[in-house]
Design a binder for these strands. Structure first.
Lengths: 298, 298
DNA sequence: ACCCTGCCATCAGCAATACTGATGGCCATG
DNA sequence: CATGGCCATCAGTATTGCTGATGGCAGGGT
C-alpha cells in the first residue's frame, strides 16, 4: 500500500486522458478497478489527487505527477538494465540521436560498423534531447548521441535516469546565425551580451534556448520574437535568412546555407559538443560503434 | 508484481546486512517473508539477484542496487512533497547545510528569523553534499544550503531527486591553500594547470576534489598524496600548513589561519558558490529565512 | 568425526488484497 | 424530462502476501 508503480501508472494515465473509464480501457482494467486504485492512492497519501467531473489533478495530484514520470522511467530503466545482462541479440543495433548529432562522422562510423557486422539490423531514431538518455536507459536504444552547449570543460547535463556514462565525441565552435545582409554578418568574435536586445528565435530543439543564453551571459533580454518548437534545422535557417530573428548554433551547420552567415561567438566561452551516451556495458556492434565514435579510442 | 517499493526496500536491506534473517528482524517481517519477497523479485526480473551463503549481490543484483536507492529516495520525496501541502507546523525549522555553507551571514539571517518567530524550534543539520538535496526533497529539512565550485555563470549540479529549486546566495573567489613557507605563497593569480604536478590533498567533502580539477583544467595530474574523506575544515588546514599537500578552497576560509596562505586562482575561472535549495513552496519561518538569504530579495 | 547452531528454502494455511461485474447517483445534454 | 456517460460503491471471488512449521545445508566447537 505504498506508491506501487502500477498505481502510479494508472494515476498518470487517468490524468493524461482525463477519464477513469478511458484509462481503464487503455490499461485493460475495469472502470471499477481504476476507481479503486485511485482511491487507494489517495487514502495512502492522505490527500485528494484528482478532481472529478471534470477529472483533473488537484494541487497534490499535480505534485505527484511531477514525480511519477521520472519514477516510472527509472523503474523501467532498472528493469532494462538487468534484462540487458541476460540476453544479447548482437544482430540488432538501435541508435538514438538528437537532430544535430547526426553528422557525416557518425555516418562513416555506422558504415564501418555495418561492414564489420554484415546482416546488422540498424535503426537510427532521431529524438529530442530529453528522450535520448531515457531511450538508452530503458533499453529502447543501445547507444545515444546528444548534443548541446556547454562551457569548454563542463560536461553536458543529462537528466538523471540512471547510471549512464557519457563521453564527448565532437566539439565545434558556436556562432550566431545572421541573415546575409545583417550589419554584424562577417564580424568575428561577437560578445553575446551585446546582442541581448536583438530579435531572437527561440528554438530549444536545435539551437541554444533563450533561457540558456541569459544564464550564460548573466544578462536579461534575449526575448524571443518567434518560438520554434520543432527540430527541423532547415526551416529554422529559412526563418533566420528572412530576418525573423537570430539563433545560436554550432558553426558547422551554417556553412553553405544560402542567405545565412555565421558570426563566431567569443563571449561567453561556449562550445557545441556532442556526447555519446551508453548504458554500462555495450556489447557486439554497439561496442564497436562506441569505440569508433570515441576520439580517444584505445 | 513489478518492482514494488517494499520489495526493493527489503532487497537493499538484505544486501546491506548480508543476511535474510537480519533484514527480516530489522523490517519486522518473518525470515520466510523476506525469502519469498526476494524470490518474487528474482522471478519478476528473471535473474538471480543474490548469491546465498554468503549473501551478496550478483551482477544483476549490483545493477539493481544502483537503481533502488534513488528510486526509494524519490518515492519518499514524492510522499513528502504531498504531505507538505497538507500540514504546516510553522514553529519548526530544519535547515540542512554543507559545512562550508555555515557562515556568519547565515548566522545573522537565522538570528533575524528567530526574532520574527519567537519560540521557533530551530535545527541546523550539517550534512554532506549529496545528502542536503535529499534531505530537502524528503522533507527532513525545510531548506538546504549547499556549496561547491562552478564556472562563474553555471549553476551547481544537484542530484536529481525531484523538483527542487536552487538560487545562489553567495559567491566568493577561489584560492589555493599553501603552507606559509611555500614558494608560491603570496603569489596572486595562479593558473591551476601549472600546479598539476604538485602534491595534493583530496578532500572532496570540503575542498574541490581532484577529479573536478582535472576536468576544469583539462590536464591530467592532481594526483592526491593524501585522502581526507571527512568534512572537518580545521583538520584539513592543519595538514596543509604541515606541507602534506595543497587544496583548493574558497578564499574566505583561509583568512587568519595560522601557517596557511591563500593564492587566488586565475585560471580556470572558478567561483565558490553557496546555493539555497528549497522544495516548491516554503511557508512560515522557512519562507522568511529563504527571503533573508536571497540576495535579490523582493 | 560428530553434533549443534544458525542460515535459507519450502510448504500449508490463513488473512488481506485486488480484481470483476452489477448497481446506483450525479451531471450534462438533447 | 428523459437519456447517456461518468464515477462511486458494493458483494463476491481469485490472488497475493504473510505467518509458523519444517527440512536441508554449511561452518564451528568439542
Amino acid at each position: 500500500m505504498a506508491m506501487e508503480p502500477h498505481l502510479l501508472r494508472t494515476f498518470v494515465t487517468v490524468a493524461r486522458l482525463g477519464s477513469f473509464s478511458a484509462a481503464a480501457r487503455e490499461l485493460g482494467y475495469t472502470q471499477s478497478a481504476v476507481s479503486q486504485q485511485i482511491a487507494v492512492l489517495e487514502a495512502d497519501l492522505g490527500a485528494g489527487l484528482l478532481h472529478r467531473r471534470p477529472v483533473e489533478p488537484t494541487e497534490a495530484g499535480a505534485r505527484l505527477l511531477e514525480h511519477a514520470g521520472p519514477l516510472l522511467l527509472r523503474t523501467a530503466a532498472a528493469r532494462a538494465d538487468i534484462a540487458r545482462l541476460a540476453g544479447a541479440p548482437a544482430s540488432r543495433l538501435v541508435l538514438a540521436a538528437t537532430p544535430l548529432a547526426v553528422t557525416t562522422g557518425l555516418a562513416a562510423a555506422l558504415a564501418a560498423t555495418r561492414q564489420a557486422h554484415p546482416g546488422l539490423e540498424l535503426t537510427v531514431r532521431v529524438l529530442g534531447r530529453p528522450e535520448v538518455p531515457a531511450a538508452v536507459a530503458t533499453g529502447e536504444a543501445d547507444l545515444g548521441l546528444t548534443d548541446g552547449m556547454a562551457a569548454p570543460s563542463d560536461p553536458l547535463q543529462l537528466p538523471d535516469v540512471g547510471p549512464l556514462t557519457a563521453v564527448a565525441v565532437a566539439e565545434q565552435p558556436v556562432a550566431v546565425a545572421l541573415p546575409a545582409g545583417h550589419p554584424l554578418a562577417g564580424r568575428r568574435g561577437l560578445d553575446l551580451a551585446d546582442l541581448a536586445d536583438a530579435r531572437w528565435l527561440d528554438a530549444p530543439g536545435v539551437a541554444v534556448p533563450a533561457e540558456r543564453l541569459r544564464a550564460a551571459t548573466g544578462v536579461a533580454g534575449f526575448r524571443p520574437a518567434t518560438r520554434y518548437p520543432g527540430t527541423d534545422l532547415r526551416g529554422l535557417l529559412v526563418l533566420v535568412a528572412a530576418g525573423h530573428g537570430l539563433a545560436v548554433l554550432p558553426q558547422g551547420v551554417l556553412d553553405g546555407v544560402p542567405g545565412v552567415l555565421g558570426a563566431p561567438v567569443r563571449e561567453p566561452r561556449l562550445v557545441h559538443r556532442t556526447e555519446l551516451v551508453r548504458g554500462s556495458l555495450p556489447e557486439g556492434p554497439a561496442a564497436l560503434l562506441a569505440r569508433l565514435l570515441d576520439p580517444e579510442r584505445p
